[in-house]
Nucleic acid binder design. Sequence first.
DNA 1: AAAATCCTTAGTAAATTGATAGGCATTAGA
DNA 2: TCTAATGCCTATCAATTTACTAAGGATTTT
Lengths: 139, 139
Amino acid sequence: MKISTKGRYGLTIMIELAKKHGEGPTSLKTIAQANDLSEHYLEQLIAPLRNAGLVKSIRGAYGGYILTNEPSKITAGDVIRVLEGPITPVEGIEDEEPAKRELWIRIRDAIKDVLDNTTLEDLANHSDDNEHDGYMFYI
Amino acid sequence: MKISTKGRYGLTIMIELAKKHGEGPTSLKTIAQANDLSEHYLEQLIAPLRNAGLVKSIRGAYGGYILTNEPSKITAGDVIRVLEGPITPVEGIEDEEPAKRELWIRIRDAIKDVLDNTTLEDLANHSDDNEHDGYMFYI
DNA sequence: AAAATCCTTAGTAAATTGATAGGCATTAGA
DNA sequence: TCTAATGCCTATCAATTTACTAAGGATTTT
């Protein structure tokens, strides 16, 4: 039910790169410091993002990472799938009996719908409004 | 992102009890055998369900468990919250910056919508159709 | 040459998962 | 009253995952 720090920090990295898109490479050190995260840990997270072709690295001094695509063309789902695996509430949906199977499928599709329709552009350009504060803590 | 066997087996228990609702208690042994699960493990899962008041136990020979409410009045969300904790894709949504915070809230609400609108009656009475087979494996 | 950066592998403490083991407490039915 | 069937409780544990830390090599710019 939870998305771990892999997916969350991974999104943080990608949002930072989206904000700097077109301005040359951004180093992990910069991103780690700006978000108070471990640079070493981020290195481990960006490796799969690079292998998946979502980012490109530029080595050496003044190097860093850049997005390989427009922020409007990369979704939160792209990032989460790489770092957390397939989007599904349970392993082996196909093995469940019909009633539960349909429940998991409805949940999966609901999550997919949100993640696949939210782009890095949406996330990077987001204003600092707080329109959701009113019901935020209702669980 | 995942619901563990706690929530899944817990739902299995509750669906079995819903099927037998009004017919007297059902033992964990019966449920464990019917679903090829460890009876001992199910005992650990039903304890919190009992503490939460979702089921009532009847001790002694020919005892077992019964639902404390109509299957139409108990939702999958009730069961999942007891066994998996609050429904949320991340811990500490309130600590995230607005862009990600809204993303997590949208995901949370989408999951809540499904879980809170699916009752044990829905799950117990489900026919064995396979209407979703066509796109089931698309992730 | 020096500094900044990416890249890779290894290790690790804590938590969670998914059980198993053993046995006591309670009750229905013979 | 005895016995079998059940619920109830505590402890233990192997495997996995999480969230890092550590160490150092490879590459490129200045």
